[in-house]
Design a binder for these strands. Sequence first.
DNA 1: TCGAAGCGGAGAAATTTCCTCCGCCTACGG
DNA 2: CCGTAGGCGGAGGAAATTTCTCCGCTTCGA
Lengths: 213, 213
Amino acid sequence: MRADAERSRRRILDAARDVFLERGLDAPLDLIVRRAGVGPATLYRRYADREALVRDLTGDLLSRLEAAAHQAAREEGDAYAAVRRFVHAAADLRMGAVIPVLLEGLVVDQKLIESRTRTSGALDDLIHAAHESGRLRPEVGAGDLILLSIRLSRPLPGGLSRLDADGTLLHRHLDLALDGLTTQAAPAPAPAPGEPLTFADLVAAADRPNATD
Amino acid sequence: MRADAERSRRRILDAARDVFLERGLDAPLDLIVRRAGVGPATLYRRYADREALVRDLTGDLLSRLEAAAHQAAREEGDAYAAVRRFVHAAADLRMGAVIPVLLEGLVVDQKLIESRTRTSGALDDLIHAAHESGRLRPEVGAGDLILLSIRLSRPLPGGLSRLDADGTLLHRHLDLALDGLTTQAAPAPAPAPGEPLTFADLVAAADRPNATD
DNA sequence: TCGAAGCGGAGAAATTTCCTCCGCCTACGG
DNA sequence: CCGTAGGCGGAGGAAATTTCTCCGCTTCGA
């Protein structure tokens, strides 16, 4: 692949991620093109349709997340620290942009499914170890962590997005959520309501037939 | 005002809040109309333009938030519990839908400004008391709490939104963030990076001139 | 240096969004 | 219970946005 083509691809994927985050997966491709600073033809030449673009982006992000999961397991001695690191990495990647794709049945691509399986397996291992270590609250599951990372990494509405242009605030708030807002001296927190949310719960929710409205 | 007119207003405001949350303040009014289950004329008859609708919605939500702030201060003995309750209330109201309006200079309506001032004052009091009580981490400011409530109360992307149709999950995650994901036995958390975020910080960020792109 | 591959802009076609007109319906005072 | 003022929804034309292609120019890489 020619160098300039690869450069365009990168710019388009980066722009697509941001636009999908802000406007959802059905955002106008025009916006992506404009944000990427390329001509419309450059996008349409590479991607036959929206789905092709979404799939390429999903693969790109997922493979990076998979790498992050393994790296966290490998490089962090403490099990809870590894979970923490994974959550921060998922937020940095802005997995929220493509989470619906990863969870919904739409994914036909075999490569994607395998990567997803490996990644969620790695995450389960991290969490299991953290539970064993006694550091991670038992009522917290993989789904809770993923949702936390998605919710905190979505761009803020309106002018507020400027508040966190570089992501400092995102990591600050992730840290606060991971550790809690209360001081150490506080009495034991009441157990959070509900059951631990698993990865499978997310998939199940996303898979139910869509009521379009 | 006739009973059916008031009923329509309510339906439109509720729908507008949801649509603005999902698509931002420049979402097509058509969507609101459809979600509200009313005819387009019903919206346009009442509101001369988008701004009028946004203003009415903002006033509606803000006055309810103000009531919640006072109620929290009045009914909760413990200072930290009051903060907690306020954050949950703000999330329930989905203040994120109109936060940009409240923070940006666009608000000309004197009533709105006064209500905003009263509410942020009440919140500051809650937080100050919670800091005094030693329960709330000192590096947490009003802005942090508002952002937390906004971020956790925005709808999840795609099919995931079905996961939390009734808001149970929202409050679960709010609780987790407030108390932290670690167990009581954990060592003292590292201080969160950065300075406490104040309400004024939010306003300042939102007020800077918009770079439209 | 040359050919193949990639690029962006102009713009036609399709779709979405905005907004009004108008005939029917409903709330509510008498 | 009835009259009517006020409210309602749907149809649909105008305007704006979005999609997607053609084509002449530029850039990469052998």
